[in-house]
């Protein structure tokens, strides 16, 4: 007998829509965080610290930099890099750490896989939650940038969906990576992956300042896509070329979710 036959005969309730099942896990995270809402506020304070310390302070010393063939104040230039970096950090650290604990210690997903949800729903549900939280942080960051006068175009509004995409991309890859972590010591590998990207993704200097060989490598790194996207949007230097970055980040989401789903399946459904 098929499921449909049983539903038709009134023997069982119609199953949850498989395309929407993952939202149940996202909902669970919302319920959990409603109690811990002060944590969310830290996300609003952070951009002030980032922008004050690096942008404004260093900006006064450096002056202007050349970007897209024109002079741009350094603080405007670097703020967009910070925006992309914050989106990455938020996604990677919150997602991998929480996910790792829930996977290995709290047995949360063991419980969930005994319900109609599937491993893919776990991966998608967690990424969606990371994305929701990231949207909140990035919005706070963008508003702060605008208040400090660090945005130069209305295109900056489109930087919000861009940061959401960056968050989704790094959350997905982070999730996939976290399934390979065996203990808390392994989190050093996460730092090892993140720190060079933070330092070498045209975050602090224009790509033209790097040696040619290094610049070529940087063009292919994940965070560079995010930085380039955010910078173009907040300065209003928009072109069709940006779609390449979008495609790259979308591919990260697809690969990350696929790998994470398979790993969750393999680890928990032995």
């Amino acid at each position: 007998m098929s499921v449909q036959d049983l539903v038709d005969h009134g023997r069982i309730a119609p199953p949850l829509d498989p395309r929407k099942r993952f939202l149940r896990l996202t909902e669970r995270n919302v319920v959990g965080y409603v109690r811990a809402w002060p944590i969310l506020l830290t996300g609003v304070v952070e951009p002030f610290l980032y922008l004050l310390s690096i942008g404004i302070g260093v900006g006064a010393l450096v002056g202007d930099v050349t970007y897209a063939g024109r002079q741009v104040p350094y603080e405007t230039f670097v703020a967009s890099g910070m925006l992309a970096t914050a989106a990455m950090n938020g996604a990677v650290f919150d997602t991998t750490f929480n996910f790792f604990i829930r996977l290995r210690y709290a047995k949360l997903y063991d419980a969930i896989l005994a319900t109609p949800l599937e491993p893919r729903d776990v991966a998608l549900g967690e990424v969606t939650w990371a994305l929701m939280r990231g949207t909140f942080y990035s919005a706070a960051f963008l508003v702060t940038m605008a208040l400090f006068g660090l945005t130069e175009s209305w295109w900056a509004v489109a930087a919000l969906p861009a940061t959401v995409l960056i968050g989704a991309a790094f959350a997905s890859i982070g999730l996939a990576g976290a399934t390979y972590l065996r203990s808390f010591l392994d989190f050093d590998f996460v730092n090892l992956a993140i720190t060079p990207m933070f330092l070498f993704s045209a975050t602090f200097f224009p790509l033209s300042q790097y040696p040619d060989a290094l610049a070529t490598v940087i063009r292919f790194t994940p965070l560079y896509q995010g930085v380039a996207l955010c910078r173009a949007l907040t300065t209003g230097e928009v072109g069709v070329g940006l779609l390449v970055h979008v495609a790259y980040l979308l591919a990260m989401v697809a690969v990350g979710v696929a790998v994470a789903s398979r790993r969750i399946d393999g680890l928990l459904r032995s």
């Binding site: 007998m1 049983l6 199953p15 949850l16 099942r21 319900t115 109609p116 599937e118």
Partner: peptide, 13 residues
């Protein structure tokens, strides 16, 4: 009356 290989979510529900 269902097959766990194909109807996991329906069975688990």
């Amino acid at each position: 009356h269902l097959d766990p290989r194909t109807d996991g979510p329906a069975i688990r529900s």
